[in-house]
Amino acid sequence: MSAAILTFALGYAQLVLSLAACVAGVRILRGPRAQDRVLALDALYIIVMLVFLVTGMQLGTMFFFEAAMIVATMGFVSSIALAKFLFRGEVIE
């Protein structure tokens, strides 16, 4: 019983999160200006991190947790670098 509930919940979460990732991808393609695309990329990083966490729960391995942590950290660094780039036109002064 609990296996069925968890399988359904994790499958639903994977489906819904991948839909959300597609929606963020549409915004990356459509975004009228550069800041919209950077914002969409930041949202996409978070959504992909959540997909990794849910997949890790489904497969019961620690591997996806470490991947999710790296995605979260690198997403922050890249978003900050892109935001700095939008400010000045260069990242390192």
């Binding site: 019983m1 609990s2 296996a3 509930i5 968890l6 359904f8 919940a9 994790l10 639903y12 979460a13 994977q14 819904v16 999160l17 839909l19 959300a20 990732a21 929606v23 963020a24 549409v26 915004r27 914002l39 969409a40 949202a43 978070i46 959504i47 959540l50 849910v54 729960m57």
Partner: peptide
Amino acid sequence: LALPIAFLVMLGATLTLIGAIGFL
């Protein structure tokens, strides 16, 4: 324990989708 885990995961995924739709 399975019920709260399922509820939390589904809540998190649904809220993320709502945020993404609002984003669009």
